[in-house]
Amino acid sequence: MKPSKRAPRKAWEVFPGKNTFYCDGRLITANDKTVLCITASLISLTTGLFLFNDYRITLRDQPYGVYMLFACLLLYFFVMLMLFRTSFSDPGIIPRASSSQSAQVERQLIDADVRKNGYTGYKPPPRVQEIEINGVTMKQKYCFTCKIFRPPRSSHCSICDNCVDRFDHHCPWVSYSSSSS
């Protein structure tokens, strides 16, 4: 009998955040799906109210009313498609450091502090690290949860419990995020 080789686990199977994965890790969403349902319901409700109230008058008074119905339904389906596409896409999650990586970063920071200041006791890593990119000095903040220095424009999201790249596009109304592309 041959020993069975365990297939390597995929990154999404060991993902530490508060996310739910579908379709073998191709779709990702936050645990709380009620916000997505509320958003989809509000879009559907306003479209329905338009069709029930305003469209009836347009259909009765204008000869192009059927075209307006087609345009309205086309826009509705496009908006819903983009909502679900955005909802189930990756927001740009920055991977957390493994325990060995975080220990190495802490050792390097402590060693640098000892060389610089002669300090020999333990203190937590600094909250900011300065790096130079193309001659421009940028500050990276340290995330104590993910144990990484985050790039600019990223922040830790308390809803999905991950550091998210381009946090200014991370939206709870779509139950997760917008695309990071």
Score class of each variant (00 low, 15 high):
111 D>H: 13
55 Y>A: 11
7 A>N: 13
123 K>W: 03
166 R>N: 12
72 C>F: 02
128 V>E: 15
133 I>W: 06
28 I>H: 00
70 F>Y: 12
25 G>C: 04
30 A>L: 00
58 T>Y: 07
63 P>G: 12
19 N>Q: 12
163 C>F: 00
166 R>S: 05
49 L>T: 10
80 M>Q: 13
58 T>L: 15
111 D>L: 14
158 S>T: 14
181 S>H: 11
19 N>A: 11
37 C>A: 13
105 V>E: 03
13 E>L: 02
77 F>G: 07
82 M>E: 13
26 R>G: 01
27 L>E: 03
110 I>D: 04
54 D>E: 14
98 S>I: 10
94 I>E: 01
92 G>S: 05
155 S>A: 15
124 P>N: 10
72 C>A: 12
26 R>H: 12
131 I>S: 06
93 I>D: 07
170 H>G: 03
106 E>K: 11
68 M>F: 06
140 Q>L: 09
58 T>V: 12
120 T>L: 13
115 R>Q: 15
105 V>D: 03
179 S>D: 13
73 L>Y: 10
101 Q>M: 08
122 Y>N: 13
147 K>T: 02
25 G>N: 07
18 K>E: 14
121 G>F: 04
27 L>D: 03
109 L>T: 02
140 Q>G: 01
88 F>A: 02
159 I>K: 09
138 M>L: 14
2 K>W: 08
75 L>E: 06
53 N>C: 12
170 H>Q: 09
89 S>V: 06
27 L>C: 10
5 K>P: 11
51 L>M: 15
59 L>P: 02
151 P>I: 07
153 R>G: 00
129 Q>P: 03
84 F>V: 05
173 W>A: 08
35 V>R: 15
92 G>Y: 02
104 Q>C: 10
69 L>F: 10
94 I>Q: 01
17 G>F: 03
54 D>G: 07
27 L>G: 02
34 T>E: 09
68 M>S: 05
181 S>I: 14
92 G>A: 02
126 P>R: 11
167 F>D: 06
83 L>K: 04
38 I>Y: 07
61 D>Q: 11
29 T>S: 11
165 D>C: 04
16 P>M: 00
87 S>W: 02
83 L>Q: 04
28 I>W: 00
71 A>K: 04
103 A>N: 10
126 P>M: 05
44 S>I: 08
139 K>W: 00
165 D>Q: 09
112 A>P: 00
109 L>S: 04
20 T>G: 00
4 S>A: 14
110 I>Y: 04
43 I>T: 06
46 T>V: 14
9 R>A: 15
146 C>Y: 00
96 R>G: 10
176 Y>C: 12
63 P>C: 05
160 C>G: 02
84 F>Q: 03
66 V>F: 07
39 T>L: 03
155 S>T: 02
3 P>R: 00
81 L>Y: 15
110 I>K: 15
10 K>R: 14
98 S>V: 11
41 S>W: 12
12 W>T: 03
109 L>R: 07
181 S>M: 08
37 C>F: 09
118 G>A: 05
43 I>L: 13
178 S>A: 08
92 G>H: 04
93 I>A: 09
78 F>R: 00
165 D>N: 14
156 H>I: 09
177 S>G: 14
105 V>Q: 09
135 G>N: 12
165 D>S: 11
9 R>Y: 09
55 Y>C: 05
